[in-house]
Design a protein around this nucleic acid. Structure first.
Length: 379
DNA sequence: AGTGCCGGGGC
DNA sequence: GCCCCGGCACT
């Protein structure tokens, strides 16, 4: 009952329709996190990444809008002094919250493609969302026991299926790094923009001075946490082996690996499932290494699905980990010009159609939508 | 039957 | 160039 009441309050506060479970979960995360005063750059940015992931996946169309949205959110947050420098003070939360509202209102109102449930104009609840960072507000519906030691409130988070528990446990020595998942590339950078630029220029061969992004590079890196204290002794495997462009380009497309899953973990494990998968994955992947993870841009189903927002869920479905490396890279010149009757053998990787299904066709890559060779899961 | 995508066509 | 789709190879 208490949960229901809270949910109602959150929904009202954020003008979230009763049907919109996904949005509710996301906003709950944010609100809870904020209320816990965990707005360190790590915790808050993690949540925001999740949010952006949700945003990214929720809009059925309008790629540009999605990108603008994601970029706007992250930009506004990353440039917010609150996010960057806030330590424990809960005071003066305005900048971030204002940025939020601006982002929400501008992005959604500019959306022309219609029936997106985030569009505030569609909301039946007329009240204006109040700033999420307000102490009073967050306290009132998320932390009735605010006076207690927050760190003991661990069970509280279990009431919210998608709350990221990590921020509470983070220590000052933890630092978020971004690791390139491109095969044979161990590049680790400290900023998402840096890693995106790296992927874009080094792996995707795009113009380095162009800021254009089609979002594809988002799939190819993951966020990891590095314990700075023991970085020097234990992170040899995460240390960039080659600074930038050295080394051959991958012969095959990137293999999606959840960064810190044990190798024995089948990478093609179905991540999309009930929320209960999250703790399972977490426990299984409890790393002996220094990183635990969270992968950005987790695939999240449509509105009607309950979803896990983080914890290794990878938007890009895993390819087979055995990835046979052909010693003689396929040279198109060497290949016979597909003789009549012979066709290029079908790749093993699941394509957008199979991954997302017909009902989520708008999530396919462009090529798949046009019945062309898949660009996202190319073999 | 379902999937991947080439080739071709409309705009 | 963007987008759609018939149709065929393949699973």
């Amino acid at each position: 009952r208490e949960r229901e009441v809270r949910e109602k309050e959150v929904r009202e506060q954020w003008c979230i329709g009763s049907e919109d479970l996904g949005l509710y979960n996301i906003m709950t995360q944010i609100t809870l996190l904020v209320s816990l005063q965990s707005r360190t750059s790590i915790g808050f940015m993690s949540i925001m990444s999740n949010l952006v992931s949700g945003v990214y996946c929720r809009k059925p169309s309008g790629r540009a809008d999605k990108e603008v949205m994601a970029a706007t959110v992250l930009t506004s947050l990353s440039t917010s002094p609150l996010v960057l420098t806030q330590t424990s003070s809960a005071a003066v939360p305005e900048p971030a919250s204002r940025g939020w509202k601006e982002v929400l209102s501008t992005s959604y109102s500019s959306s022309t493609s219609g029936n997106w449930s985030w569009d505030t104009s569609d909301q039946s609840v007329p009240s204006t969302p109040s700033p999420p960072l307000s102490n009073d507000a967050s306290k009132s519906f998320l932390l009735p026991s605010q006076g207690d030691d927050v760190s003991e409130d661990v069970t509280e988070s279990t009431h919210f299926p998608f709350v990221d528990p990590i921020p509470r446990k983070r220590k000052n020595s933890m630092k978020v790094m971004f690791k390139c998942l491109w095969k044979n590339c161990e590049k680790v950078l400290s900023t998402s923009s840096g890693i995106q630029r790296h992927i874009r220029t080094v792996h995707l061969g795009r113009n380095c001075d162009s800021d254009y992004s089609d979002g594809e590079e988002d799939f190819y890196y993951s966020e990891i946490e590095v314990n700075m204290d023991s970085l020097s002794e234990g992170l040899s495997s995460l240390t960039p082996t080659s600074p930038t462009t050295s080394g051959p380009p991958p012969i095959f497309p990137p293999v999606s690996l959840t960064a810190c899953l044990p190798r024995s973990e089948p990478s093609h494990i179905a991540m999309r499932g009930t929320p209960s998968h999250a703790p399972t994955l977490l426990s299984q992947s409890a790393p002996s290494t220094l990183c635990h993870i969270r992968t950005d841009h987790a695939y999240q189903g449509p509105l009607t699905h309950t979803r896990t927002v983080s914890f290794g869920e990878k938007r890009q479905p895993a390819l087979h980990t055995h990835t046979t490396i052909s010693k003689t890279p396929p040279s198109t010149a060497a290949l016979p010009k597909s003789a009549p009757g012979t066709r290029k053998p079908r790749g093993e990787a699941k394509k957008c159609r199979k991954v997302y299904g017909m009902e989520k066709r708008d999530m396919w890559c462009t090529a798949c939508r046009w019945k062309k060779a898949c660009q996202r899961f190319n073999d």
